[in-house]
Simulated assay, not measured.
Amino acid sequence: MERNHDEGGATTAEYAVCTGAGVAFAGLLFKFLSSGAGQQFLTHVWDRITGMLPF
């Protein structure tokens, strides 16, 4: 016996989950980069990048 299942809302739900995960990741990234440890990390990365430049 073969049954047909309506999966019309599945795509919308998947987009909603991905959007929620993206927003949560962006929030965590913002929180980290605006903290003291995040600022030190950015300073370290920037210093390494400018140290590799030939000018």
Rank of each mutant, 00 (worst) to 15 (best):
C18D: 09
M52C: 09
G38E: 03
T11N: 04
F41V: 06
T12K: 04
L53Q: 10
C18I: 02
T11M: 04
E2T: 13
R3D: 06
H44A: 13
C18P: 00
D47C: 02
T50H: 08
H44S: 14
A24L: 15
L28T: 10
F55T: 09
G51E: 14
A10W: 01
F25T: 13
F25M: 15
Q39K: 15
G38S: 03
E2Q: 13
L42E: 11
K31H: 11
Y15M: 02
L29N: 09
T11I: 10
A26W: 09
A13E: 08
G27D: 05
F41G: 01
A13N: 07
M1T: 06
R3V: 15
L28R: 07
K31V: 08
C18T: 04
R48S: 08
S34K: 10
F41I: 01
H44Y: 13
V17F: 01
G22W: 00
T11L: 10
F32A: 06
G9P: 00
F30Y: 15
S34I: 02
D47Q: 10
M52N: 09
C18E: 08
D6N: 12
E2L: 12
A10F: 05
W46F: 12
W46A: 15
A37E: 13
A13V: 08
F32Q: 07
P54H: 03
V23R: 00
